[in-house]
Design a protein around this nucleic acid. Structure first.
Length: 283
DNA sequence: GCGACAG
DNA sequence: ATCTTGTCGC
């Protein structure tokens, strides 16, 4: 891909600054104030995936899972053609349009399944101009959104330094986190150790209509593994659509980890009885 | 100045 | 973002 044109980047920056004013960094929903998120029934995840060698055509996926049991309620997939290139810091202009279309379709065909919060593969306020993809989707859909990035974006003052690595090493158990603060001291996100089995954190930030602490707490309760289930499930779904050969593996994983909402008991080897845990949570 | 830089 | 095979450990 050719270098992004300066003119386009300037236009995008102005648009981000304009939309940034609409981001709500507060808990606007009753369930967000509840200690166990009672009232929260549906969580969503969105993602795009690509075929190797083709960065124009993508598969856009939306899934809706039950909370807290993380059972897939709805799954939608559509092949789309993207108009914008990938430029770090401007993911929203590339990925938001088809994902918003998927939400719009859901509103038309199954409005009762609309998720109460959306997990987004990428950052929210933890972003160069405090307007990552999760904010972009949040503002344009007006849905509560949480950004979860698997890799660290190098925002001002936050880099993969030895200091950062030592903070990661200090995350002892699942649920531990540390703030991601800019040079000016503003906390834009948190690094969260989301599972006992992985030392590598995920980077959680506010997308829209949620506080950072609520976002981190919610993310943790959605994690059976490192990546929160809504994002993990949507990633499995998108990749299965593009690479059917991987479907067998994916289905096996789903069968293995999901706990039936009202049905039979969860697998014993995944849920050791002696320890108290949140529903659907491995550790 | 150059490189780094979510997906 | 994207592919792949095996391998180690609980």
């Amino acid at each position: 891909m050719a270098a992004p044109e300066a003119e386009l980047v300037l236009k995008w920056e102005r648009e981000q600054a304009r939309l940034r004013e609409s981001v709500k960094e507060e808990d606007t929903e009753d369930w967000q104030r509840s200690p166990d998120f009672s009232g929260l029934k549906r969580v969503g995840g969105v993602d795009l995936s690509f075929i190797k060698g083709d960065d124009i055509n993508a598969c856009a996926h939306l899934v809706v899972l039950t909370y807290p049991h993380m059972k897939v309620l709805y799954e939608d997939c559509k092949m789309v053609t993207l108009n914008a290139p990938y430029v770090a810091g401007f993911l929203g202009f590339r990925e938001a349009p088809p994902l918003l279309q998927a939400l719009e379709k859901l509103k038309n065909v199954q409005p009762n399944l609309m998720p109460q919060v959306l997990f987004v593969d990428g950052n929210g306020l933890f972003h160069y101009r405090e307007f990552g993809l999760a904010c972009h989707l949040g503002v344009l859909s007006d849905l509560p959104c949480v950004g979860v990035a698997k890799n660290l974006l190098h925002v001002e003052g936050v880099v993969r330094s030895e200091e950062h690595q030592s903070q990661i090493n200090a995350l002892q158990k699942s649920g531990d986190s540390f703030p991601l603060a800019t040079t000016s001291g503003r906390v834009l996100g948190k690094a969260l150790r989301s599972s006992h089995s992985s030392i590598k954190p995920v980077y959680v930030s506010v997308g829209h209509r949620i506080t950072l602490d609520t976002a981190v707490r919610l993310t943790h309760t959605c994690c059976l593994y490192r990546v929160p289930e809504p994002i993990r499930q949507v990633t499995i779904a998108t990749r299965s659509s593009l690479y059917p050969s991987q479907r067998i593996t994916a289905v096996t994983w789903i069968k293995y980890v999901s706990s039936p909402d009202g049905g039979s008991a969860p697998r014993k080897d995944l849920y050791s009885p002696e320890r108290q845990r949140r529903p659907g949570q491995l550790e």
